[in-house]
Each structure stands twice: as structure tokens, then as C-alpha cells.
């Protein structure tokens, strides 16, 4: 290894693991003071990133708990990206095995939902679907259409009412609310439209259909799978709505050409 790399690695380990550092020169104050500044910056920047990505978790557990949780998270899961906004993807997994959070079993699922919102906020821009082109597809070819979901779109399944919990902790919501944690599972759909990240609840057939589409199924196949278990599923009204809401944002080119 090139000699200067060794200094860099030693410096990195001194920051992250509190190791000693021999290659650094102490300036007009002890080298420990310098390393403490770097250690504080390191943890502070990652804590800040977690705080920005997880405002609902923060409200649910309180600032003090959140700070302690963030410190332990940083300890066990280092940053892997130079972009601070990428930090925290694994908070849900971390919380699932975090002993101090076992009393709030819905936390990991709220974390998953918040990360989906965070991703949606930064997702690539898209053009809405070309309605005229879509309308021009011959009826006999429509069943073979493969729709594309908005890159901001995420479906999060939970055994708790996560959509209600998330909504109640948005800015401007009343502070006194009552959520029955036993009110059953909820499936959240995250999307972004007109730059605003939205979260809404999906029914089982809706989520099943969208997940089929997400995995690349044709209109026909996705609908057939859902109708098997949910014979009342009304595709047409959903289709119109999801196109309008920019959840379906394109369809495959093969179908366009036909």
C-alpha cells in the first residue's frame, strides 16, 4: 500500500473507531482536540442526516431517544456514500433488532415508510403518461400493455396502521389524535406528484395489482392474478385514477409500436 494511504486509513479509523493516530502532527493544541472536532463532525453530520430523513420516528420516540438511537446506529452501520442523503437506508432493520425499541413494534415499519418517502423526494423526474398515445393502442393489443410505475412509487406493507400514524405526524396536524394500534394492517403507497410526496392507503387488490405491474406483468396477467382472489376488483376506475395521479407513468414500447 502506498505510504500516504496508510495515514489516511489511520486517520479514518481514529475518527470512526476512536483509534490512536501517529501520523498526524499536533498543531498549537493537543492532537486529541483536533480528532475530537473530526469525530463530532462525523457523528453530527450523520445524526443530522437521520433526523432529516426520519421526522416521524423522531416525534414518536422523542429527541433524546432519537439521539441515542442515532449514535448506536452510526456505531453499527457506517456511511457508504459521499452523499449524506443516502445515509439511513437500514434504519428499519436496525430498529427491528434494537432492544430499546421493542415496546414500539411498529417503529421498523414506520421507518421503512419514511425511507420510501425520503427516496421519493429525491427520485428522478418523469413525464406523465402520453394519454393520446395510450388511447391510440388498438383494443386487441391493450391486454399486452406493460405499465411502468413512477420511480418515486413505493408500496410498504405493515401489520400496523402506518398510514394513519404517518399522517397524524405531518406538520400542521392536530396534536391530539387517537390511533387504535389494533385497527389492523395497512398498505401504504408512496408517490410524488407536483413535487409533493404523498402517502395513501391501498386496499389488498390495489396493492396486489400494482405489485404485479411493478414486477413486469402485462395488464392482462396482472388483472387475472388479482381477479382470482378479488372478483370485484374494478380495474377501469383504478387505471384512470393511477394515470391521473402519475403512479403509472409510461407503458412499454413494444406495445406502442404495435
Amino acid at each position: 500500500m502506498t505510504a500516504w494511504f496508510e495515514d489516511v486509513l489511520e486517520f479514518g479509523n481514529a475518527i470512526r473507531n476512536n483509534d490512536a493516530m501517529s501520523g498526524g502532527i499536533g498543531p498549537n493544541y493537543p492532537i486529541g482536540t483536533a480528532l475530537e472536532i473530526y469525530r463530532n463532525n462525523y457523528r453530527g453530520n450523520l445524526q443530522g442526516a437521520l433526523g432529516l430523513a426520519y421526522p416521524v420516528i423522531r416525534q414518536l420516540v422523542g429527541d433524546e431517544f432519537f439521539r441515542m438511537m442515532a449514535i448506536m446506529h452510526i456505531e453499527s452501520r457506517p456511511s457508504k456514500s459521499g452523499n449524506l442523503h443516502d445515509y439511513g437506508a437500514e434504519l428499519s432493520k436496525f430498529l427491528a433488532s434494537f432492544p430499546n425499541a421493542q415496546e414500539l413494534p411498529y417503529l421498523p415499519e414506520i421507518a421503512k415508510l419514511e425511507w420510501a418517502c425520503h427516496m421519493a423526494y429525491f427520485a428522478a423526474d418523469i413525464e406523465p403518461i402520453d394519454i393520446v398515445l395510450l388511447a391510440s393502442i388498438a383494443p386487441e393489443n391493450q391486454d399486452r400493455l406493460r405499465f411502468l410505475l413512477n420511480p418515486a412509487c413505493r408500496i410498504v406493507r405493515s401489520s400496523f396502521p402506518i398510514v394513519d400514524i404517518w399522517q397524524a405526524h405531518q406538520p400542521g396536524m392536530p396534536e391530539d389524535f387517537l390511533i387504535d394500534l389494533d385497527s389492523g394492517p395497512q398498505i401504504a403507497l408512496v408517490n410524488r406528484r407536483n413535487d409533493v410526496v404523498r402517502v395513501e392507503a391501498l386496499s389488498l387488490p390495489e396493492s396486489a395489482w400494482l405489485e404485479e405491474i411493478e414486477s413486469g406483468a402485462t395488464l392482462w396477467d396482472a388483472t387475472a392474478v388479482v381477479l382470482e382472489n378479488h372478483p370485484d376488483f374494478d380495474l377501469e376506475s383504478h387505471l384512470v385514477n393511477w394515470i391521473e395521479q402519475e403512479i403509472l407513468v409510461d407503458f412499454d414500447h413494444e406495445a406502442k409500436e404495435n
Partner: peptide
């Protein structure tokens, strides 16, 4: 970045030919 982990900060290094 050490390759193992990233320190999201602006860190100095030795100024050498290498």
C-alpha cells in the same frame, strides 16, 4: 472514504508526490 466506510466530512491528507 477508506473503502470500508465513508466519513461525510472534508478530510485532509498528506501532500506528497504520490
Amino acid at each position: 472514504s477508506t473503502g470500508e466506510f465513508v466519513v461525510n466530512d472534508l478530510l485532509p491528507f498528506p501532500y506528497t508526490r504520490a
